[in-house]
Simulated assay, not measured.
Amino acid sequence: MENNQLINIDKLPELLKHDYTFIDLRDSLQFNKVHLQKFINIPYENFINNPPHLSKNKPIYLICYSGKRSLELAKQLTMQGYDAYSFNGGFYAIEHPINNQLY
């Protein structure tokens, strides 16, 4: 089964050049330790319990630690008419020294 909401992490540097919505779903402690430029922190539980007002006019890129929750949420948002995506492997996939330029 193909996941149209799944984006390879290597696309991130190019995506960050655009005015898209970037949301980090990790808890605030993890986010405050290290996060990606342009990403806002809305912990997953907060997002589910009190969904933010998001524009349907631009893509939404979600990231969590493993990629599982962000993919689940991207699928839900897509069913609601949003253009939502999740990064394959989540934050874990970019926590390697060769990718420090993303921080």
Rank of each mutant, 00 (worst) to 15 (best):
S28W: 00
I42W: 04
Y85L: 08
P13Y: 09
G89Q: 07
I42R: 06
Q80E: 14
Q30I: 13
K68C: 00
L73S: 04
L25F: 06
I48P: 01
L25S: 08
E72G: 03
L62N: 09
M79K: 14
N49V: 01
R69Y: 05
Y65R: 12
M79T: 15
E95T: 10
N41Y: 06
Y65M: 12
K17E: 15
K38S: 11
V34F: 04
F87V: 01
N8I: 10
A93T: 06
P43W: 03
I23Q: 08
K58D: 01
K17P: 00
S55H: 03
Q37E: 14
S86K: 04
Y92G: 07
E14H: 08
P59V: 08
Y85W: 08
I94M: 09
N88D: 15
K38L: 08
L15D: 04
S28I: 15
H18N: 15
L16K: 03
K33D: 14
S55Y: 04
K11A: 12
I63P: 00
H18Q: 15
C64Y: 01
Q76R: 09
L12V: 08
I94A: 01
F87C: 01
N41A: 11
H53A: 11
R26P: 06
L25N: 09
N57L: 12
H35R: 09
F87Y: 09
L73I: 08
P59L: 11
S86Y: 02
L12R: 07
C64F: 02
L12M: 13
N41R: 09
P51M: 10
E72R: 10
I9K: 14
L15V: 07
Y20H: 11
C64S: 14
K58W: 00
Y92M: 13
N49M: 12
I63L: 11
Q30N: 13
K17R: 12
N50D: 13
T21F: 03
K68M: 11
P52D: 10
K38M: 05
L16W: 03
Y61F: 15
M79A: 14
T78L: 02
H53G: 00
N49I: 05
L25D: 08
K33C: 05
T78F: 01
D83C: 04
G90L: 02
L77M: 12
H35L: 05
E72F: 09
I42M: 09
S70I: 05
F31Y: 15
R26D: 08
Y65E: 14
I42A: 08
H35M: 04
L12A: 05
Y65K: 12
K11D: 09
Q80D: 12
P52K: 10
A93C: 06
F87T: 01
K56E: 09
P52G: 07
S70F: 03
I40R: 11
P43L: 11
I9V: 15
N88S: 13
I48S: 03
H35W: 01
N88M: 13
F47W: 06
I48C: 04
H18P: 00
G89Y: 01
N8E: 15
V34Y: 02
N8S: 14
N32P: 00
I7R: 09
N50H: 10
N50I: 03
D10G: 00
A74F: 06
G81D: 08
R26T: 12
A93P: 02
I40E: 15
L15I: 12
